[in-house]
């Protein structure tokens, strides 16, 4: 089996090489799940078999699809808003110590309040629609974005900034050409955390008052003791998180091909 790193065959091989371990683990998990349910160790109304769950997923696919779309929409919207606000807040905080000193404790306070505890309040204030879910998603995803962006903007080589000063560069140019691009690796690690948290935020929002979305599906299934549907909802929910995470990773790979973490990965995959 000869490697052909340049061709599409070589690329396929590297993808296979990279993904067979997690895929194997996933299959093993399903096998254990299947073994537990088929040996009747646990009654099926507590843990449905993989077959039953997948059966529900195909049978009620349009129902699930509809609610998946709602949750995905809330998640992505919340994530995008969190990124915009988070990045802007970080930029302001890095450029003004006064703002940083004022805002940081408030941010920290907002972060330590359990979102689940304040979610009902948003329902009271904002109703049962889309808004409270998006707000919870924003609140929960915002913090890692700010922290990573502040760290990124502050980790710029001070000599690079001195150099920019001797070049007579305007603060805007220095930001656009040096500070911002240099902060992206940090920002992306924050984005990966934020995007998975946004899913949680959206579902928490749905739990406290909704008539659509996967959180609603799960609560309904729970009320009806419909464990296969409950499991199906959980599976789809995790899938949303995984897909969004992968999308952020792909964006990172496209935008930062120069970064050391990417290079390291490239080196290991061409082994």
């Amino acid at each position: 089996m000869s490697m052909n790193p340049g061709g599409s065959e070589g690329r396929l091989l590297t993808v296979l090489e990279r993904s067979w371990r997690p895929v194997a683990l996933l299959i093993a998990c399903f096998a254990v799940w299947w073994a537990i349910t088929s040996t009747r160790l646990v009654p099926p109304y507590l843990v449905p078999s993989p077959g039953t769950t997948l059966g529900v997923m195909t049978e009620k696919s349009s129902y699930l699809w509809q609610h998946t779309w709602v949750t995905t929409y809330e998640t992505v919207l919340g994530f995008v808003i969190a990124v915009v606000i988070g990045v802007l807040a970080a930029v302001v905080m890095v450029y003004s110590t006064t703002v940083e000193k004022t805002l940081y404790p408030v941010l920290l306070f907002a972060q330590v309040i359990p979102k689940i505890a304040i979610a009902p309040l948003f329902v009271v204030w904002l109703g049962f629609g889309l808004t409270p879910k998006v707000v919870v998603a924003v609140l929960i995803a915002f913090f890692p974005v700010v922290i990573s962006m502040v760290t990124g903007l502050k980790s710029v080589d001070p000599e690079m900034l001195q150099l920019a000063a001797t070049m007579g560069a305007s603060p805007l140019k220095t930001f656009a050409k040096i500070r911002f691009p240099a902060s992206l690796p940090h920002l992306f690690s924050g984005l990966k955390v934020a995007v998975t948290l946004a899913v949680t935020g959206a579902v928490v929002g749905e739990f406290v008052g909704a008539n659509e979305g996967l959180g609603f599906v799960i609560l309904q299934a729970n009320g009806n003791l419909d464990t296969p549907m409950l499991f199906a909802g959980l599976l789809v929910m995790s899938l949303i998180g995984v897909v969004l995470f992968v999308l952020v990773e792909i964006a990172e790979q496209l935008m930062l091909p120069w970064h050391a973490s990417r290079r390291g990965e490239a080196a290991t995959t061409t082994l």
């Binding site: 001195q162 150099l163 001797t166 050409k177 691009p181 120069w258």
Partner: peptide, 28 residues
């Protein structure tokens, strides 16, 4: 602004090619 500065560490922007790192001076 009428000086050139070289530090012990090259202090290059790692996302820019050699030529574009040199041209940073001009862009700024």
């Amino acid at each position: 602004h009428d000086i050139g500065y070289v530090f012990q560490r090259a202090a290059l922007l790692e996302w820019r090619s050699a030529r574009r790192n040199i041209l940073l001076q001009a862009e700024m």
